[in-house]
Design a protein around this nucleic acid. Structure first.
Lengths: 141, 141
DNA sequence: AATAATAATAGTAATAATTACTATTAACAA
DNA sequence: TTGTTAATAGTAATTATTACTATTATTATT
């Protein structure tokens, strides 16, 4: 993306284009890795030695908001527990944060398809749907 | 599950069946909700007022290990960032924790299928594959 | 049933990722 | 160039989870 286009993108949403933001975006975009906030902080620190963690986190949110990067919420934290131990998918309502079990078959073929295309040992997959649940979209909640 | 079967299940893996474990399992299994560790702590606290957070967390891991409950790692924390903003899937190596972009088409039909079966407003889905990457399974890493 | 060995517990402190706060600095519209 | 205000650096606070430790409870063995 050209620098003036980038600037427009920022101003369009009322953000300012700062050196910090430019370099954070640059560092994330240049590789094929999927760095953590911590790793991004370290990479950027080489170019802006006194940058702070707060600035990195704040700007990751800004860049995500602008659609310039994607945030993948993997995780170790914030688990939910399910008494249903048979393999199944979930739907999460982004409004009320309720999680619903889905009664659709688990697609083992997705793993097979990926095995056929790659050299990965595919063990399992996680499929999570997101949207608005019935109660929330009908104004009941 | 009968109580004696449950006990066998625990002993089989060298765990003891304690009141705390029984009640934690009971509370998770009785509803269709997907409680957080915090919520479980509060539910169990009604029956064992002086239970501690540590006990809940420790036993959630034990119950998961026994296959009696499932842990869904949703999350707010531990994000990874991706410079590739076009919709795509990932493969995560559970050995080296590397994340790979997958070059397989995004299946919009999964959302349509779910829309057809439920009254949810399905907005998007996340599909993550897990397993062992080529380098790790060939002993290179 | 009594005992010995040790796993599990309660209570508390520590950790790790992220977010909030605040005085200072920098971007940019006029 | 200047005034307005968003963004920054630095630090403290927050939140979910884990670690630590003295005490208690469970189970195997007598």
């Amino acid at each position: 993306m050209r620098s003036d286009q980038l600037e427009e993108r920022f101003k369009g949403k009322g953000y300012r284009l700062t050196k910090q933001r430019e370099i954070i975006l640059e560092e994330i975009s240049k590789g094929k890795t999927h760095p953590s906030a911590d790793e991004i902080y370290l990479m950027v620190k080489k170019k802006i030695p006194n940058i702070s963690f707060g600035t990195v986190y704040r700007n990751l949110k800004v860049l995500r908001d602008l659609g310039l990067i994607r945030e993948l919420e993997f995780s170790k934290s914030f688990s939910r527990y399910d008494g249903n131990t048979k393999d199944h998918y979930h739907f999460t309502c982004t409004k009320c944060n309720k999680i619903f079990d889905l009664d659709i078959p688990v697609m083992e073929e997705l793993n097979n398809n990926l095995r056929a295309k790659t050299s990965f040992q595919v063990l399992f997959h996680r499929l999570e749907f997101y949207g608005i649940c019935h109660d929330c979209s009908s104004g009941l909640r």
